[in-house]
Write a protein that binds this DNA or RNA. Structure first.
Lengths: 256, 256
DNA sequence: GTTGCTCAGTGGTCTGACCTCACACTTCAC
DNA sequence: GTGAAGTGTGAGGTCAGACCACTGAGCAAC
């Protein structure tokens, strides 16, 4: 009990101060989603700090997904669906040895609950949006790439309909990790017809406000999706040879 | 077809290169949890980039919670329980207007599932660890601060027993957001006896490998905890006057 | 043995220059 | 007129080197 310097975590780093400053600007409404923040040079001058320190703070917020930096254009407050740092999970994954099945299990639990909540709270607008996406899925069963887009939108709409943006954002984090890989293997997808069928079941359960059924349907769908993706991955890895060489400024970095 | 650089999202930013480089070092085992990375000056020289750029990459990874930077000491690969960027959620919160009840709902769903999984998969070691914490809780019902420590450890042990570190990390993210506030209001806690009682029920259900009961007990517990915390918060806000003045380098920043 | 100082190592900040990119505007050929 | 090529401007990205601030350990005085 001799030391307890954690209680008063005063803003020691300038980085932290920048973060909190911008956070405050967002809290009091000075900055809203989509807004552009001042140019770095100017902003740094206003804040009476160096551009380097400001950039550290911006970098932090960008890593968190709160800011969106576009080279040559400007830095913007993130809009769109809330995502808790997209690549965060994959980084954590390599560090703690996450297994793919754990990813799927997490998704199963989250989306299952999301579907149940959506069934309880979904409004008309959500129902029609879901119906729209289901229709699009049926219409694109022969175009895997296009299908995937509507697939993602369907799930995202359910997340929105759940009325809990926090859970939605967690789901976005999980699925985002799976998405990159999926985009590469989607070419080999089959049974999209069956997939569309299952989405329709989910939709019907949600529209009927039957939470339990919605959860069950979602879980059935995801279990099948898992199997499918594992198969796709297996097919992929059986023929991979060329690795496009990339000339990176630090290509020959030592192996420590 | 003059340009097609989109397919291979080459590492355009040096920051990204640094991140991927370190990521690779972790993947191939050159760096493990707890390890210290080379000093910035040296590392930057090895990578043939400026220290500023290296720092940008390190900053990103630190924001992600993958690296742990300690002024005057060094930069280390994070160990301890996996956490997806602690402050991320609170940042997202102010941006998208997260409500407290949504936080509790997310926690309810996550921890409920976690408890169910723990009941299915928990090993002897977890059972004994849980028993230990429950005993400590009973022993510290009159010391809120100490009690809170064991409370947190109890939930963390369940998360570990669930066998799914991804879900555990999501839970850690959620509870971490609630924790800061809790630490301030915990003084006013009461009914710790009852709380300990509920933890014991959860423990018994997990030990008996009864998933459904474990989930129910956990949900009951969290619902009560929510009510309690809301009350504590109400008592808190009724008397707050002094706001420790903080001399910040950018204290007088304009309100834009 | 304890206390206090110094010092080396390491991250934190600053400065100001230059590079690269995206976009809008201008110019010119057709 | 209209489209394409060139150019200017403003924004973020990188660099170099200096100096500041913190930590921990070793040394010295007590």
């Amino acid at each position: 009990m001799s030391k307890d310097p954690e209680l008063v975590n005063d803003e020691v780093h300038l980085t932290t101060q920048v973060v909190n400053h911008i956070r405050t600007l967002i809290e009091n409404g000075s900055l809203r989603a989509g807004d552009k923040i001042p140019p770095e040079r100017e902003f740094a001058k206003d804040l009476k700090i160096s551009r380097a320190s400001l950039r550290a703070g911006i970098g932090y917020l960008a890593a968190m997904g709160v800011l969106n930096v576009r080279h040559g254009v400007g830095t913007f407050v993130a809009d769109g669906p809330p995502v808790v740092s997209k690549s965060s999970l994959s980084l954590m994954g390599v560090l703690h040895g996450f297994k793919p099945w754990q990813l799927f299990e997490a998704r199963l639990i989250l989306e299952g609950s999301l579907a149940a909540l959506a069934a309880e709270r979904g409004k008309e607008e959500h129902h029609s949006a879901l119906a729209e996406e289901v229709a699009e899925m049926y219409a694109t069963v022969s175009d895997p790439h296009e299908y995937l887009i509507h697939d993602v939108r369907f799930h995202r709409t359910i997340a929105e309909a759940s009325g809990n943006p926090i859970l939605a954002s967690l789901m976005e984090t999980i699925t985002g990790t799976l998405y990159d890989e999926r985009r590469k293997t989607v070419e080999r997808s089959r049974d999209l017809k069956q997939s569309a069928e299952m989405h329709r079941e989910i939709y019907r359960a949600i529209r009927a406000k039957k939470a339990v059924e919605a959860r069950d349907a979602m879980e059935r769908h995801l279990r099948m999706a898992e199997t499918a993706q594992v198969n796709e991955r297996a097919m992929m890895s059986s023929k991979r040879a060329q690795q496009k060489p990339r000339r990176s400024k630090m290509a020959e970095a030592a192996k420590a």
